[in-house]
Design a protein around this nucleic acid. Structure first.
Lengths: 239, 239
DNA sequence: GATAAATTCAGGGTTTTCCCTGAATTTGGG
DNA sequence: CCCAAATTCAGGGAAAACCCTGAATTTATC
């Protein structure tokens, strides 16, 4: 039995290592990595049955590392360790894991029992998803509330503070098209239009950002990545 | 020597307990509490020299707990443990700690050495602030960039998605006054006006929210508290 | 391939946000 | 008490965001 533990924080690595050592029966080999890049390299080298991946890591996020590992070694059991129940990450993970692949999704405030359970489940071919995220997953698959890629794109743009016109330019669309996307987005988020609400009048744009943050559809660190990408493309390949 | 450790996560409590036991010389008594309310009670009862407080806790936040403890026992050394370098919290803490009071501010990704250092510093009457927050503190005291209470209030409102008109109603102001506040806010955040920017056109409202999040002036959980308060006041004391 | 759904785009109208100037008022120190 | 700074408020104007309807296209799905 071999396990790869990937986390940039020593404290968490120690905790996991201790936990797995005491809870998993049989001989156990543990490898460690400190970031996504190391994780991919180590996985290639040692081909562990199980990989524990922190989401927030320098160089390569846990999700991206999982993607690369699974593309080479689809048999690997992946367990994601996350601090939040962010819908963004669940969405991304969903795309990355092969249809018949196995994965676990554990929040960092999980009990030791839960982590051990998740590890065992994934090893024996089952998925294990933290209770409380089940809800998020459901939403991820629900047509009515699940955002399309287009809507998500628009969401990120307004969250960064772009105007309709800027968004249109950047995405090669008309302003009207952008407004269409936004309208659909507001509807899915359940934001009332002007005068549609009994007691509170909202600025839909800002309200959409707020609610999306609340639901974990977007979060600050994701946005910051998007920003650097969007602004870079402008400076580099300027018109 | 007595220390009170307050954190709702067992893992972190254990970590801190082990750390302090091994690093602090002399006989050591450690008390524990799981939330802000318990913390205040325990502090009253045991009068520890040092209190370690997590910021995010059920019932009473670390800051508020610190406020109550310091109002009764101003001699207590308070060390805040936070996951982020959020400016909101530093601002709040600044107000709560008496002018001659002692406090520490440690990020949770701090090394064991740093935590031990912070504990010793506070015990011997010095403040200890995590490197990287120094910058935030400076900004907190800088006239030009530091937000006034009025601007902060406006910021929270737009971040929640309220319109100018709604804000005016809620704060008993004119729409024009609200716009004044917002204008000042945008200026302090350094957001370019229409056409003032060479390459990107921003929706100032959303941009302000984004940048404030980035700088830690506001954050999601704070906003959610504000929301429940603002919406409650409407339903309860209507008109 | 046909149906349904999502997406783009248009025209034209209303409201909101943002801009500029400027004055009365409040606030905090010296 | 007075100055300087912050704050509130006003009027009027330009731009952006939102609303409605409706049609042509693309995209999935059966």
């Amino acid at each position: 039995m071999s396990v790869l533990i990937v986390d940039d924080e020593e404290r968490d690595r120690l905790w996991l290592k201790g936990l797995l050592t005491s809870r998993l029966e049989g001989p156990l080999t543990i490898y460690e990595a400190h970031d996504g890049q190391e994780a991919v390299d180590a996985a290639m080298k040692y081909k562990p049955q199980l990989v524990f991946l922190d989401i927030k890591m320098p160089k390569l996020s846990g999700i991206k590392a999982a993607e690369q590992i699974l593309s080479k070694l689809p048999e690997t059991g992946v367990v994601i360790l996350s601090n939040f129940s962010d819908e963004v990450y669940v969405r991304q993970l969903w795309k990355v894991v092969p249809p018949n692949g196995v994965f676990g999704y554990v929040l960092k405030n999980a009990s030791d029992d839960q982590v051990a359970e998740a590890a065992k489940a994934v090893l024996s071919g089952d998925c294990w998803i933290h209770p409380g995220i089940a809800r998020v997953i459901q939403r991820t698959q629900n047509r009515a509330t699940n955002l399309t890629a287009a809507e998500y794109e628009a969401l990120v743009c307004i969250a960064l503070g772009l105007t309709d016109h800027e968004i249109a330019t950047r995405l090669y669309l008309t302003e009207k098209a952008v407004q269409s996307r936004l309208k659909a987005l507001y509807a899915k988020l359940g934001i009332p239009g002007r005068g549609e609400s009994p007691d509170v009048d909202f600025n839909q744009r800002c309200r959409a950002v707020y609610l999306s943050n609340r639901r974990g559809l977007i979060n600050q660190s994701e946005l910051e990545e998007w920003e650097s990408r969007l602004l870079a493309s402008r400076t580099t390949a300027g018109s």
